[in-house]
Simulated scan of single mutants.
Amino acid sequence: MADADIDWAALYQKHRNAMYGVAYEVLRGSGRVDLAADAVQEAMVSLMKSPPAETPRSWEPLLVVTAERRALDMVRSAAVVRGFEFSEEFLPGEVGSGEDETLERLEKIARARPVIARLDAQEHYVLAQYIVLDRLRGDVAAELGVTPARVS
């Protein structure tokens, strides 16, 4: 439960940019920078639920490290659940023309198929709506009756 003596809103306003910056950098390697705000939100919620026993001299290091850990959790959880390690081959690249680029793209798709095949029906729906059709996470979440973070 949130400690009544701590002004969480003021802490968030003061340190949100630093928290977001760290989360963004961690998630950039996985190609999921869209989750940086979620990492910041989860960091704040976890600290509000379980505040430090003693008030820290400076809140920024605690808030930044917590946001970084939440972002790392997101990267690890996606890699473990989906059964692959994030690498450059899954990141968007330049669109090229020619036979070599087409062959490379087809090879990447072939490597992704087994991972996609392990998804359940709801995960397939989310993949189609959120990733392929580029629909807003909130809209897909509302349709499924889950939180936007769950869609991510």
Rank of each mutant, 00 (worst) to 15 (best):
R69S: 13
E99T: 07
R69Y: 05
E94T: 00
G83C: 00
L106H: 13
E88L: 10
A117Q: 11
D134T: 08
R137G: 08
A71H: 01
R105Q: 02
V81R: 06
A141C: 02
R70T: 04
V95M: 05
R105G: 03
D73W: 08
E104T: 09
P92M: 01
Y130V: 07
V75G: 00
P92N: 02
P114Q: 03
V95S: 07
R118V: 14
T66A: 02
T102C: 14
L72E: 06
V64T: 01
F86I: 10
L119K: 00
G145Y: 10
E85W: 07
V146A: 02
E143Q: 11
R135M: 14
S97A: 15
A142Q: 07
G138P: 13
L72F: 07
V126N: 12
L144R: 07
I131N: 14
A121L: 15
I131R: 10
V95C: 06
R111L: 06
E88D: 14
V140D: 00
A71K: 03
D139C: 14
D139Y: 09
E89F: 12
S87D: 09
R135T: 04
A71F: 08
V64K: 01
A112Q: 12
A141P: 01
R137L: 15
F84L: 00
R76T: 06
Y130E: 05
L119Y: 01
E104H: 06
E99W: 14
V146M: 10
V75N: 01
R113P: 13
A79R: 04
A117H: 02
E94Q: 03
I109L: 15
G93Q: 09
V115G: 10
I109C: 11
A71E: 08
T102H: 15
R135L: 15
L63C: 00
R137I: 07
L63V: 01
L136M: 15
I109Y: 10
R118E: 07
E101T: 04
A78E: 05
R137D: 14
E104G: 04
R105T: 08
R82H: 07
Q122W: 15
L133Y: 12
A121S: 05
E123W: 04
L63R: 01
D134R: 14
F86E: 15
G138L: 13
E85S: 14
R69G: 09
A78Y: 03
L127D: 04
P114E: 05
L63F: 00
E104Q: 11
E101P: 03
L133G: 13
V75F: 10
F86C: 13
L106M: 09
L103Y: 10
L72Q: 05
A128Y: 10
A142I: 05
I109E: 08
P92W: 03
R113C: 11
E68Y: 12
G96A: 09
R111W: 13
V146C: 07
A110V: 08
G138M: 15
D100E: 15
P92G: 03
L133K: 09
K108M: 10
A141K: 03
G98R: 00
E85P: 12
L91A: 10
L106Q: 14
E99V: 15
E94N: 01
L106F: 11
V126W: 08
V80T: 11
E94R: 06
D100R: 15
A142Y: 01
G138V: 13
A71W: 06
R113Q: 12
V140A: 02
L119H: 00
A121N: 12
E85N: 07
F86P: 14
G98S: 00
E101C: 05
A112N: 05
